[in-house]
Simulated assay, not measured.
Amino acid sequence: MAFDADTGRLDAVPDAPACGTKLRWSTPQLIAGANERVPGTNVRAPHVLATAPLKAGPAMAAADPPPQPAAPVAPVECRMPPDGYRRAIEAHRQAAPPSRVDPGIAQAVERQTAAMRELSRRAFPEPDVVPDDALAPIEQARVQRRHQAAATEANAMRRARQERAAREAGTPTIGPWPGLRTTA
């Protein structure tokens, strides 16, 4: 169908889906054959497209039988099943025991269902209703982060002052600051 020399892509449109499958399976042979038969080409990737619809030509017109007139469609009649079939179904219904549920099993199922609902409620709690004038959860987190940053900054400034005073006095500085946390 087409060949792109820049990318080495050969587009092929098979006549039938089976031919497309055969082309896909025999890709290495297709590449070798195309590069061998057409000098100067460098087919690297064949791309098999969907099958092309058949065009009605003179050969197709001769092969197609003439259209037959459509038979009138009669309504389908529903018949009652034979008596033997109905008797067999009724006998099966009478012979099959009705399903009985053990009350102990039913209670166990109810307990298990209640326990699973409770676990689900704990794992995925309903969000609390936030009043209109309250901060949204993201704003609460931002405010908390600002407070933490301010406290950390105040501790760092306090320690820097103490270390400077210790240097000026000529006394050794103390190890890690007790108020600071390390992260890792």
Rank of each mutant, 00 (worst) to 15 (best):
Q144D: 09
A141R: 12
K55I: 13
P103Y: 05
A150L: 12
G40A: 07
A2S: 15
V43N: 04
A134M: 11
P131W: 05
V73M: 08
N42D: 11
S26C: 14
P176A: 13
N35K: 02
R100P: 00
T51D: 10
G57E: 08
P127Y: 06
A74W: 02
I138K: 07
W177K: 04
A166C: 07
R145K: 07
S26M: 15
A169C: 06
A108L: 12
P131C: 05
P137V: 02
G170M: 04
A154P: 01
W177D: 14
T41M: 07
T182Y: 04
S99A: 15
P178Y: 01
P103M: 06
R146D: 10
W25C: 09
R164N: 09
H147N: 08
P82R: 13
R9D: 05
G20L: 03
W25A: 15
R79S: 13
A169P: 04
D132M: 01
E110I: 05
I174Y: 07
T21A: 14
N155P: 00
A16D: 13
D83V: 11
A108H: 06
T27K: 12
V76M: 07
G170D: 08
L30M: 11
A91R: 11
M116N: 10
E118G: 01
E126V: 14
R159S: 02
P67I: 06
L180V: 09
T152I: 08
R111F: 06
M80H: 08
T41Y: 00
T41G: 00
R79K: 15
A151C: 03
L23A: 10
A150G: 01
A45S: 14
W25N: 15
M116P: 00
D15H: 06
G84K: 03
R9Y: 02
T41I: 15
R146P: 00
A62H: 02
Q148Y: 00
C19S: 11
A108G: 11
G57C: 08
G179P: 00
R117D: 14
M80A: 14
